[in-house]
Design a protein around this nucleic acid. Structure first.
Length: 186
DNA sequence: CGTCAGATTCTCT
DNA sequence: GAGAATCTGACGC
């Protein structure tokens, strides 16, 4: 019998911005064989869908991005710069193309590598493109409830270059001000 | 300290 | 064929 996990927030009804903030402090778990790799989420970014020009969904629905247009609570994992896997969680209603990028976690169990950046955390958690389109309600990758973070800092998103200033500057990155595991912004 | 290029491969034009 | 929601190590000051 596979375990049934619940989302720590109503991802279906909420937009990516709400979910990104609510995810800070929650626990991300990845089961690899008999090992549970666990970490507290300390940094996230919201991608708001088709109208958000920094979001992959803005380019329309393609083979790569179709998972973002699907049901909330699924993982969207893609490869960037030829070598780094990015972990996102789809939010909102079907067809909106919203997702939250997990940028950094604080190691809790069975994690030795660095996790202070989106490419690093997927490597530490052993998450790859093979995890694309898997459900966060299943028994492979899931989220656990934990107290919400109060001391949150909001900034523009990282690595957004080729779009209107309005979307480069949009304050959609959130991190736990008390954590030492935050990615370095440039 | 800081800035900069190279790694490396998938996706869309 | 370009460019990408990044990271690291090398160099210069």
């Amino acid at each position: 019998m596979p375990k049934q996990h619940k989302l720590p927030y109503n991802f279906y009804a909420a937009d990516a911005k709400e979910v990104a903030q609510s995810l800070l402090g929650k626990i991300l778990v990845h089961q690899v064989d008999d090992l549970l790799l666990k970490g507290h989420i300390v940094e996230t970014e919201a991608y708001l869908g088709e109208h958000d020009l920094a979001c992959h969904a803005a380019k329309g629905k393609t083979e790569r991005t179709k998972i973002m247009f699907g049901k909330a609570g699924y993982a969207y994992v893609y490869l960037i710069y030829g070598m780094h896997n990015m972990l996102n969680i789809v939010t909102g209603s079907e067809g909106e193309g919203q997702a939250v990028l997990i940028r950094a976690i604080e190691p809790l169990e069975n994690i030795t590598a660095k996790t202070d950046g989106p490419g690093k955390l997927t490597r530490a958690l052993r998450i790859t493109r093979a995890h694309n389109a898997i459900s966060l309600l299943g028994d492979k990758l899931w989220l656990e409830q934990a107290p919400t973070i109060d001391n949150v800092i909001t900034t523009p998103r990282i690595g957004i270059n080729n779009c209107d200033q309005e979307w480069k500057d949009a304050p959609l990155r959130f991190y736990n001000a008390d954590s030492e595991y935050i990615s370095k912004s440039k």
